[in-house]
Design a binder for these strands. Structure first.
Lengths: 204, 204, 204, 204
DNA sequence: GATGAATGAGTCTTCATTCAT
DNA sequence: CATGAATGAAGACTCATTCAT
C-alpha cells in the first residue's frame, strides 16, 4: 500500500523514506544528462540505483513527480552553494562578478546535474512550469539587482530585464561547454564571462 | 508503396510530394514547440496536419528523418532571411549590431520554429549531431569575426570563443522570451541586446 | 476500374493482361525463394518487375491470389516438362527411375521456383490448400502406379501410400540440396535416389 | 520491468518465470502449426495462453527469441525421448529400423510440435540458422552411420549423403501425414518406412 | 518497505489495398 | 492500363504503473 507518496499523517517523511527518495533522485540525474530525458526510463534509473523500477513508483506519485524533484533538488543544492559564496560582496559590480564566477565554478563541479535540468526543462511539462517560475523569480531578482545598481549609480542605464535574460542565458550555456570541453580553463572562462557583463553594465 | 522516400530516378521529388513534405514539416513544428520533442508523436503531428500517421512514414523514412528535416528547414529559411539583412555592414561593430538585431527580429517573426529546433537539439540524436555541427560552425564563425575585429583594432582583447558562446546563448534565448512575452518591444529588445555586446567587445 | 481481375465478359483475359500476370508471377518467384514468403512484399516484387505495387493488385484480387498463381504456374510448367520426359518408359521400374531422374534434373534447372513453392506451402493458407490437393492427386497417382506395378508383378508387396509419401518427400528435398550444394553431381544424385527406390520396390 | 529476459544475477530463472516461459512456448506451438509462422502473432499466442501480448515481450527479448526457444524445446524433448528408445540395437540394420520406428512413433504422439518446427525452419532467420546447424549435424550423423554400416559390411555401397537426405525427408514428412490422417496405423506406417530403407541399404 | 509479475496505453513502422487521375 | 498518393489494420515492442506477496 502506498504511503501517500511518502507522507505520513503529519505530512512528514520518515528518515529512510527521505533517504530513498534522495538516492533515486541522484540516480535519475546521470541517465538524463547522458542519454537524454526521453530515454532515461525507470528501468535505466532503477538499474543505476540498484533497486527495482516499481520502487520508484512507490516513492514518487508518477514520472513527472520524480523529474520535478530532480529539478528541485539540483536547484536547491545549487542555491545553497551559491548563497554562501556571494552575499558579502562590497558593491554591485563586485557582486555581479562574484555571482558569475561562483556559478561558473559550480558548473565545473556539477556539470551533469545542470545538464540534466536543462534537458528536463526542454521536455517535461510540469517540471518545466516549476522551473519557469524559478527562472522568473531568478530573473526578477537579477533585474532587481541591476535596477538597484543603477539607482546607486554603479551601473549605467539599460533595460534590466534584457540584461537579466542575457545573463541567465550566458550562465546556462556554461555547463555544456565545460562538459564537452573539459580542457577549458575554468577560471579564465569565469573571468572572461564576468568581464563581459561588467563592461556591459558599468558606466563609461 | 513508398516512393523510396520521395526520390525518383533522378533523385528529384514531384511537386505534390514536396508540398506534402513541407506541410508535414510545418505541422511537426508546432507540437514540438508546444508539448516537446518526446510527446510530439506521429499521431499528434498527423492530426494537426489533417492526414493519417502512416502518411508521415510514407514521406519520411522514419521519425529521425522528419525531425532532422524540421531542423534543416528552419535553419535554411533563417539563413536565407538573415543573409539578406546583414552582409553589407561598414565595420565589425556595425556588423555585430546588424547580426544581433537581425536575429532578434527574425525571432519575433518565427518564434515557434526556433523554439522547436531548440527542443529538438536537446533531444534527437541524429538531428542533434547535425545541429551541433551547425552550431560549432556558427560559433567558429562568430569567434573568427571577433578575432578579425580584434586584429583590425575595432575590438578590445578578450577570449573570442567565450564571447561567441555567450552571444549564441543570448540569441537563442530570444525566441522564448518573445513568445512568452508578446508585448515586448522587439526593437528595444534588439537594441538593448546589441548594446550589451557592443560594450562587451569595444575598446575603452 | 478493375477488370474483374483480368477477365472480360467471356471470362477470358487479353493477351497483354496475360503477359503482365506472367511477368508478375515470375517476378514474385525469386524474392520468395530468396528472402522468404513473409518478407516478399508487393514492394519487393514490384521493384523486381519494374512496375508499381498497385499494378499487382490490379491484376490479382489479393496477395493470396498472386501467391496461389505462383504455385499453379510452377506446378504446371514442371508438369509440362516432366510429362515429356517420362511417359514412354518400357516398364514400371523403368518408369519409376525415369520419373525420379527427370524430377531431379528439373530441380537442378529450376531450383528457385521449387524453393519458392516449398516456402509458400509452409505458409500461405489458400495456396497450401490448393497445393495439398495437387499433392494428394500426385500421391494418389504415384500410389496407383505402385499398385499397378505390384499387380503386374514388377514390384514387391508394400503399402503404396507410404511408398508414395516417401518418394514425394525425397523428391521435394532435392531442390534445396541442389541449391545449397551447387557442386553436387546432379546425375549421380539422381541415379542414387532412383536406385534407393528401385531397391525399395523391386522384388527380391 | 523486464527481468533482463529472465535471468537474475546467477543467470538462473525463478520457478514461476520458467513455468511461464514454458507455457508461452507451448502456447506458441499450436498457432504456428495451424496457421503458419507468419500469422502466429503475439496477439494470437497470447490469447491462446490467456495472457497479455506484453507478457511475451516481458519473458522473451523479442519474437525471434521466442521462436528459437520453440525450436530448441521441441528438439530437446524429442532428443530426450528418442535417445531412450534407440541406442542399444544389435547391429546397423536393426539400429536403422529402431531409429525410423522410434521417430515415427514420436511423430504420432507430438505431431503439432513437429509441424510447428518445420514451419519455423522454412521461415525464421535466426531460428532457422540454429535448426539448419542441427539438421546438418543430424544428416552428418546419419551419413556416418551409413558409412560405418558399409564398412562393417552390413550395408551395400551407396552415397551416404543422398541416403541420409532421403531418410531425413521421409522422416520429416511423417508428422503431417499422421496429423492429417489420424486413422493411419502408426505401427504399420513405421514398419513400412523402416522396410523401405532397410531394402535400400542392405546388401543383395 | 520492496519486488517480480503483469498489463494497457501508446510508440513507430510495414503493408496490402484503394482511388483519383 | 498504370500509378502515385493515401490509408487502415495490424505488427512488434516500450514503458510507467499496479498489485499480490
Amino acid at each position: 500500500m502506498q504511503p501517500e507518496n511518502g507522507r505520513n499523517d503529519q505530512g512528514t517523511r520518515s528518515f529512510i523514506e527521505e533517504a530513498r527518495r534522495a538516492q533515486i533522485v541522484r540516480a535519475a540525474t546521470e541517465p538524463i544528462a547522458e542519454i537524454g530525458y526521453a530515454k532515461a526510463s525507470f528501468a535505466q534509473i532503477a538499474r543505476r540505483a540498484g533497486i527495482s523500477p516499481a520502487l520508484i513508483t512507490y516513492h514518487f506519485a508518477n514520472r513527472e513527480a520524480l523529474i520535478k524533484q530532480v529539478m528541485v533538488s539540483v536547484h536547491s543544492s545549487m542555491d545553497a552553494d551559491l548563497t554562501l559564496k556571494t552575499d558579502k560582496a562590497p558593491g554591485y559590480l563586485a557582486a555581479l562578478r562574484g555571482l558569475i564566477e561562483g556559478y561558473v565554478h559550480y558548473c565545473a563541479e556539477h556539470p551533469r546535474e545542470l545538464i540534466a535540468i536543462s534537458r528536463i526543462a526542454a521536455n517535461a511539462t510540469e517540471a518545466r512550469e516549476w522551473a519557469e517560475q524559478q527562472q522568473v523569480a531568478t530573473i526578477t531578482e537579477l533585474a532587481d539587482m541591476f535596477r538597484e545598481g543603477q539607482q546607486r549609480g554603479e551601473f549605467r542605464t539599460f533595460a534590466p530585464r534584457v540584461m537579466a535574460l542575457t545573463l541567465m542565458a550566458a550562465l546556462e550555456t556554461a555547463p555544456r561547454e565545460l562538459f564537452e570541453h573539459p580542457e577549458t580553463d575554468v577560471g579564465a572562462y569565469a573571468g572572461e564571462l564576468a568581464t563581459i557583463f561588467e563592461r556591459a553594465v558599468r558606466k563609461t
